[in-house]
Simulated scan of single mutants.
Amino acid sequence: MKLPKDRRSFVVEVPQGEFYHDGGPILVHYNDINLLLTCGWLDISILTIFTMHLSKLCSTMEQNFCAFLDPGCINEASLDMAPKQAIDYMCSALLQSQAQEKPFVLAPVFQDKHWIFFFFCPRKNSVFVMDPNQPKDNKTNYKIMKYYKRVFLKYTKEGGPHAKELNLKIHWRMLKCQQQYLGWECGYYVMKFMHSFVTRHQKTFPKNFPSPGVAPLPMDQLHEIRGMWARVFMDEHFK
Protein backbone atom coordinates (compact mmCIF):
# COMPACT_ATOMS: atom_id res chain seq x y z
CA MET A 1 0.00 0.00 0.00
CA LYS A 2 1.37 3.42 -0.97
CA LEU A 3 1.39 6.40 1.34
CA PRO A 4 -0.54 9.55 0.33
CA LYS A 5 1.63 12.11 -1.40
CA ASP A 6 -0.21 15.22 -0.22
CA ARG A 7 0.88 15.02 3.43
CA ARG A 8 4.12 14.54 5.32
CA SER A 9 2.74 13.43 8.66
CA PHE A 10 -0.41 12.45 10.52
CA VAL A 11 -1.56 12.03 14.12
CA VAL A 12 -2.41 8.87 16.05
CA GLU A 13 -4.35 9.35 19.26
CA VAL A 14 -3.36 7.39 22.35
CA PRO A 15 -6.58 6.67 24.31
CA GLN A 16 -6.87 7.89 27.87
CA GLY A 17 -5.59 5.27 30.29
CA GLU A 18 -3.80 3.21 27.63
CA PHE A 19 -0.39 3.88 29.17
CA TYR A 20 -1.71 4.93 32.60
CA HIS A 21 -1.89 8.59 31.63
CA ASP A 22 -4.33 11.00 30.00
CA GLY A 23 -3.49 9.98 26.47
CA GLY A 24 -2.78 12.37 23.64
CA PRO A 25 -1.50 12.69 20.08
CA ILE A 26 1.53 11.01 18.52
CA LEU A 27 2.90 12.77 15.44
CA VAL A 28 3.99 10.22 12.84
CA HIS A 29 6.10 11.28 9.87
CA TYR A 30 5.68 9.41 6.62
CA ASN A 31 9.44 9.06 6.34
CA ASP A 32 9.40 6.98 9.53
CA ILE A 33 6.70 4.73 8.06
CA ASN A 34 8.76 4.30 4.92
CA LEU A 35 11.70 3.24 7.07
CA LEU A 36 9.49 0.62 8.72
CA LEU A 37 8.29 -0.64 5.34
CA THR A 38 11.82 -0.84 3.97
CA CYS A 39 13.55 -2.29 7.04
CA GLY A 40 15.14 0.96 8.14
CA TRP A 41 15.72 2.69 11.47
CA LEU A 42 12.66 2.80 13.76
CA ASP A 43 11.60 6.10 15.30
CA ILE A 44 10.08 6.43 18.75
CA SER A 45 6.63 7.10 17.25
CA ILE A 46 6.68 3.69 15.55
CA LEU A 47 7.71 1.83 18.72
CA THR A 48 5.12 3.73 20.78
CA ILE A 49 2.27 2.77 18.44
CA PHE A 50 3.59 -0.81 18.31
CA THR A 51 3.50 -0.91 22.13
CA MET A 52 -0.05 0.46 22.10
CA HIS A 53 -1.19 -2.27 19.71
CA LEU A 54 0.57 -4.92 21.78
CA SER A 55 -1.36 -3.66 24.79
CA LYS A 56 -4.59 -4.03 22.81
CA LEU A 57 -3.59 -7.57 21.86
CA CYS A 58 -3.11 -8.38 25.55
CA SER A 59 -6.58 -7.06 26.35
CA THR A 60 -8.06 -9.79 24.13
CA MET A 61 -6.30 -12.60 25.99
CA GLU A 62 -8.10 -14.74 28.54
CA GLN A 63 -5.21 -14.20 30.94
CA ASN A 64 -2.92 -11.20 30.75
CA PHE A 65 -0.20 -10.30 33.24
CA CYS A 66 1.38 -7.45 31.26
CA ALA A 67 1.05 -3.69 31.49
CA PHE A 68 2.88 -1.16 29.31
CA LEU A 69 4.67 2.15 29.75
CA ASP A 70 4.70 4.96 27.21
CA PRO A 71 8.20 4.96 25.62
CA GLY A 72 7.95 8.69 25.03
CA CYS A 73 7.63 9.37 28.77
CA ILE A 74 10.70 7.41 29.87
CA ASN A 75 13.22 7.82 27.08
CA GLU A 76 16.60 9.45 27.55
CA ALA A 77 15.38 12.95 26.62
CA SER A 78 12.42 12.77 29.03
CA LEU A 79 14.63 11.60 31.89
CA ASP A 80 17.10 14.43 31.23
CA MET A 81 14.63 17.26 30.72
CA ALA A 82 11.78 16.36 33.08
CA PRO A 83 13.02 13.76 35.60
CA LYS A 84 10.38 14.47 38.25
CA GLN A 85 7.59 14.12 35.71
CA ALA A 86 9.05 10.84 34.44
CA ILE A 87 9.45 9.48 37.99
CA ASP A 88 5.90 10.47 38.95
CA TYR A 89 4.55 8.88 35.78
CA MET A 90 6.39 5.59 36.30
CA CYS A 91 5.35 5.38 39.94
CA SER A 92 1.70 6.04 39.07
CA ALA A 93 1.83 3.39 36.34
CA LEU A 94 3.36 0.84 38.71
CA LEU A 95 0.77 1.53 41.40
CA GLN A 96 -2.13 1.18 38.96
CA SER A 97 -0.77 -1.90 37.15
CA GLN A 98 0.03 -3.78 40.35
CA ALA A 99 -3.43 -3.01 41.71
CA GLN A 100 -4.72 -4.66 38.53
CA GLU A 101 -2.61 -7.77 39.28
CA LYS A 102 -0.35 -7.25 36.29
CA PRO A 103 3.07 -8.20 37.63
CA PHE A 104 5.04 -7.32 34.46
CA VAL A 105 5.33 -3.74 33.26
CA LEU A 106 6.89 -3.66 29.79
CA ALA A 107 8.61 -0.87 27.91
CA PRO A 108 10.93 -0.32 24.98
CA VAL A 109 13.51 2.20 26.21
CA PHE A 110 15.50 4.52 23.93
CA GLN A 111 19.00 5.54 25.00
CA ASP A 112 22.11 6.54 23.05
CA LYS A 113 20.31 6.02 19.73
CA HIS A 114 19.57 2.43 20.70
CA TRP A 115 16.44 0.44 21.68
CA ILE A 116 16.40 -1.86 24.73
CA PHE A 117 13.58 -3.97 26.16
CA PHE A 118 12.92 -3.58 29.90
CA PHE A 119 10.28 -5.31 31.94
CA PHE A 120 9.75 -4.25 35.50
CA CYS A 121 8.46 -6.59 38.21
CA PRO A 122 7.98 -4.42 41.32
CA ARG A 123 6.49 -7.14 43.52
CA LYS A 124 9.76 -9.09 43.08
CA ASN A 125 12.12 -6.10 43.34
CA SER A 126 13.34 -7.06 39.88
CA VAL A 127 13.97 -5.48 36.51
CA PHE A 128 14.73 -7.70 33.52
CA VAL A 129 16.67 -6.38 30.55
CA MET A 130 17.00 -7.70 27.01
CA ASP A 131 19.56 -5.62 25.14
CA PRO A 132 20.28 -6.58 21.51
CA ASN A 133 23.63 -4.82 21.79
CA GLN A 134 24.65 -5.89 25.27
CA PRO A 135 28.01 -4.52 26.48
CA LYS A 136 30.73 -7.14 26.47
CA ASP A 137 31.66 -6.33 30.06
CA ASN A 138 27.98 -6.94 31.00
CA LYS A 139 27.81 -3.63 32.84
CA THR A 140 24.34 -2.17 33.07
CA ASN A 141 24.98 1.52 32.50
CA TYR A 142 21.41 2.39 31.64
CA LYS A 143 20.22 5.85 32.55
CA ILE A 144 16.82 4.58 33.61
CA MET A 145 18.46 2.54 36.41
CA LYS A 146 19.30 5.65 38.43
CA TYR A 147 15.77 7.00 38.12
CA TYR A 148 14.04 3.69 38.76
CA LYS A 149 15.60 3.57 42.22
CA ARG A 150 13.72 6.77 43.00
CA VAL A 151 10.57 5.38 41.37
CA PHE A 152 10.70 2.23 43.46
CA LEU A 153 11.29 4.17 46.68
CA LYS A 154 8.28 6.35 45.90
CA TYR A 155 6.26 3.24 45.03
CA THR A 156 6.96 1.65 48.43
CA LYS A 157 6.28 4.90 50.32
CA GLU A 158 2.93 5.29 48.58
CA GLY A 159 1.87 1.81 49.61
CA GLY A 160 2.21 -0.14 46.41
CA PRO A 161 0.87 -3.72 46.49
CA HIS A 162 3.26 -6.03 48.32
CA ALA A 163 5.38 -3.00 49.31
CA LYS A 164 5.54 -4.01 52.99
CA GLU A 165 7.08 -7.33 51.99
CA LEU A 166 9.88 -5.72 49.99
CA ASN A 167 13.28 -4.34 50.76
CA LEU A 168 14.70 -1.54 48.66
CA LYS A 169 17.39 -3.52 46.88
CA ILE A 170 16.51 -3.79 43.21
CA HIS A 171 17.71 -6.84 41.31
CA TRP A 172 18.79 -6.00 37.76
CA ARG A 173 18.83 -9.11 35.62
CA MET A 174 20.39 -9.15 32.17
CA LEU A 175 18.76 -11.89 30.09
CA LYS A 176 20.82 -13.57 27.40
CA CYS A 177 19.32 -12.71 24.04
CA GLN A 178 20.14 -12.50 20.35
CA GLN A 179 22.57 -9.75 19.46
CA GLN A 180 22.09 -7.48 16.49
CA TYR A 181 24.55 -7.55 13.63
CA LEU A 182 24.05 -4.00 12.32
CA GLY A 183 23.17 -0.70 13.98
CA TRP A 184 19.67 -0.22 12.50
CA GLU A 185 18.20 -3.52 13.71
CA CYS A 186 17.65 -2.85 17.42
CA GLY A 187 14.04 -1.68 17.11
CA TYR A 188 13.02 -4.87 15.31
CA TYR A 189 14.82 -7.02 17.89
CA VAL A 190 12.97 -5.26 20.69
CA MET A 191 9.64 -5.73 18.90
CA LYS A 192 10.48 -9.43 18.53
CA PHE A 193 11.42 -9.75 22.21
CA MET A 194 8.26 -7.97 23.38
CA HIS A 195 5.90 -9.89 21.10
CA SER A 196 7.43 -13.23 22.09
CA PHE A 197 7.19 -12.44 25.80
CA VAL A 198 3.55 -11.39 25.57
CA THR A 199 2.35 -14.24 23.36
CA ARG A 200 4.50 -17.14 24.63
CA HIS A 201 6.15 -16.55 27.99
CA GLN A 202 4.24 -14.20 30.27
CA LYS A 203 2.23 -16.99 31.95
CA THR A 204 5.26 -19.07 32.92
CA PHE A 205 8.11 -16.55 33.28
CA PRO A 206 10.75 -17.00 34.63
CA LYS A 207 10.22 -20.77 34.43
CA ASN A 208 10.80 -22.33 31.03
CA PHE A 209 12.12 -19.08 29.62
CA PRO A 210 14.27 -20.04 26.62
CA SER A 211 17.89 -19.00 26.26
CA PRO A 212 18.25 -18.56 22.50
CA GLY A 213 21.92 -17.66 22.66
CA VAL A 214 23.54 -14.54 21.31
CA ALA A 215 23.65 -15.32 17.58
CA PRO A 216 21.88 -12.66 15.49
CA LEU A 217 18.25 -13.22 14.58
CA PRO A 218 17.95 -14.93 11.20
CA MET A 219 16.91 -12.34 8.64
CA ASP A 220 13.69 -14.24 7.87
CA GLN A 221 12.60 -13.84 11.51
CA LEU A 222 13.52 -10.16 11.51
CA HIS A 223 11.53 -9.62 8.31
CA GLU A 224 8.66 -11.66 9.77
CA ILE A 225 8.18 -9.34 12.76
CA ARG A 226 8.73 -6.27 10.56
CA GLY A 227 6.21 -7.49 7.97
CA MET A 228 3.63 -8.46 10.60
CA TRP A 229 3.80 -5.08 12.31
CA ALA A 230 3.89 -3.15 9.02
CA ARG A 231 0.68 -4.89 7.88
CA VAL A 232 -1.05 -4.17 11.19
CA PHE A 233 0.10 -0.55 11.10
CA MET A 234 -1.02 0.04 7.51
CA ASP A 235 -4.35 -1.75 7.94
CA GLU A 236 -5.14 0.18 11.11
CA HIS A 237 -4.11 3.65 10.00
CA PHE A 238 -4.52 3.61 6.21
CA LYS A 239 -7.79 1.79 5.66
Rank of each mutant, 00 (worst) to 15 (best):
C73I: 03
A99W: 06
M130S: 11
C121V: 15
E158G: 01
K136G: 00
N141F: 00
F119K: 00
V127A: 06
A107F: 13
K154D: 14
E101C: 10
I144N: 03
F152D: 02
D80E: 05
T156H: 06
C73L: 15
E76M: 14
K143C: 09
F117V: 01
V105Q: 06
A82F: 13
S92K: 13
Y147N: 03
T156M: 15
T156K: 13
N125R: 15
K149C: 11
Q98N: 09
K157T: 06
N125H: 13
F119P: 01
K146S: 11
F152V: 01
K149D: 13
V109M: 11
W115F: 08
K113N: 11
R123I: 04
D131Y: 01
D88L: 07
C121Y: 09
A86D: 07
A82K: 11
Y147S: 08
L79F: 09
K157C: 06
K102G: 02
V109P: 05
K84S: 11
S97E: 15
A99V: 03
S97P: 14
A107H: 13
E76F: 15
K157A: 07
K154F: 06
K84E: 14
Q111M: 13
K84C: 05
K113M: 07
Q96N: 11
M81L: 08
I74S: 02
K154E: 13
F128C: 03
N138D: 07
T156A: 08
Y147C: 03
K146M: 07
Y142S: 03
F110H: 14
N141I: 00
D131Q: 05
A86W: 03
P122R: 00
D112S: 14
Q85D: 10
L95S: 02
F118E: 09
N133W: 00
C91L: 05
V127E: 06
H114K: 03
T140N: 12
Q96R: 13
W115S: 09
P122E: 00
F110S: 13
K84L: 12
R123T: 04
Q98L: 14
W115P: 10
Q85C: 06
N133K: 05
C73V: 04
I87W: 10
A99Q: 14
P135N: 07
S92T: 08
F119G: 01
V129N: 09
Y155E: 03
F118A: 13
S92E: 10
M145K: 15
K143Y: 06
G159E: 11
C121W: 10
K157R: 14
Q98W: 06
F152R: 01
K124C: 02
F152A: 01
A93C: 11
A86R: 04
D88E: 12
G160P: 08
A77V: 05
D137L: 04
P103Y: 02
A107T: 15
A77T: 06
K154P: 03
Q85F: 12
M145A: 14
A86F: 07
K157F: 05
Q98D: 05
C91Q: 10
H114R: 04
S97N: 15
D131S: 04
E76V: 10
K143V: 07
K136V: 00
K124E: 10
Y155L: 05
